[in-house]
Nucleic acid binder design. Structure first.
Length: 270
DNA sequence: AATGCTTACAACCGCACCTTT
DNA sequence: CAAAGGTGCGGTTGTAAGCAT
């Protein structure tokens, strides 16, 4: 359903994302956050543009992104918000947890097509366009609700249960992923993701491997653990003023740290 | 079974805005 | 204050899958 991948003249890969690329991007962001979209692809081992990585993460890989068909309530809310806000898809998306602006935009365009066709049909029947069927009647045509290719709900009231079940399944799916080496380790404790989604630099980090005074984990133990390394090493943060806090590294310092980190990982794995 | 049409949606592009230097 | 770089938004495109004929 998407463009096949290809490499452009600048050597940047475009088009459909492979599972391997998804794994790399997901693992990298879960461990390090998206500190700089432009540089991220390089350190994540991807030959994609930063924009492409951001789009893939925001619209597809980010935890909590809801997939599947829209409920009637969601659809009605979109209609209502669009009437108020116009094509402010990001603003509309804020009111629909789990839905992305791109997803809503796509949905709206699909809806518009249906509605325009309806209106055309209504006109043919000598009915005023304004009297065309509301969205709810269009949605009625689409019952039962198809939540996923494998789940169909006959009873709308069951939707909430399905959402919960689906998120559990997603968690199970993440847990079922095989452990990957180096930075491709896939986090299996999704509760830790909150700290990634918050302020990357100031949120407390579960374990800071590089803070030798607070962690006795070996490198191998760290790599096999569910922990996230979110802070730069203390030995690099020379300008740290407080013994309790790790200062936000500046540009080159952070880049240098990541280079050393990757070198460390490679030497530890060989 | 083959062909053409429609639908759904992932992904790209260009632009505007914001932040940093 | 201006320039440069990064980010986010909205519009658009391309294509696989599904459906109709």
């Amino acid at each position: 359903m998407v463009k096949p991948s290809f490499v452009d003249k600048d050597g940047i890969k475009k088009g459909a994302w492979s599972e391997e690329e998804d794994s790399k991007l997901r693992a990298y962001i879960q461990r390090f956050g998206h500190w700089n979209w432009c540089l991220l692809p390089k350190y994540a081992g991807l030959v994609r543009s930063g924009k492409s990585c951001r789009l893939r993460w925001v619209n597809y890989l980010k935890p909590g992104v809801k997939r599947g068909n829209y409920s009637k309530e969601e659809a009605d809310l979109i209609i209502e918000l669009h009437a108020k806000l116009g094509n402010k898809w990001s603003a509309i998306a804020e009111k629909l947890p789990g839905r992305t602006d791109n997803d809503i935009k796509n949905y709206w365009h699909t809806y518009l097509k249906k509605l325009s066709r309806r209106n055309a049909a209504s006109t043919d029947n000598k009915q005023h366009p304004c009297e065309a069927s509301p969205l709810t009647s269009i949605l009625k045509e689409e019952q039962p609700y198809q939540i996923s290719p494998h789940v169909t709900v006959q009873d709308e009231s069951a939707l909430n249960d399905i959402v919960v079940a689906e998120s559990s399944s997603l968690h199970d799916f993440e847990n079922s992923l095989p452990p990957l080496n180096d930075v491709n380790c896939v986090a299996s404790d999704s509760t830790c993701l909150d700290s990634v989604e918050g302020n990357f630099w100031t949120e407390p980090c579960p374990i800071n491997y590089f803070d030798q005074s607070s962690s006795e984990l070996s490198y191998a133990e760290l790599l096999s653990s569910n922990s996230y390394v979110l802070s730069p090493p203390r030995w690099l943060a020379e300008d740290v003023s407080s013994s309790d806090a790790v200062a936000e590294p500046q540009g080159n310092l952070w880049t240098e740290f990541l280079d050393k980190l990757i070198q460390n990982m490679e030497s530890n794995l060989t």
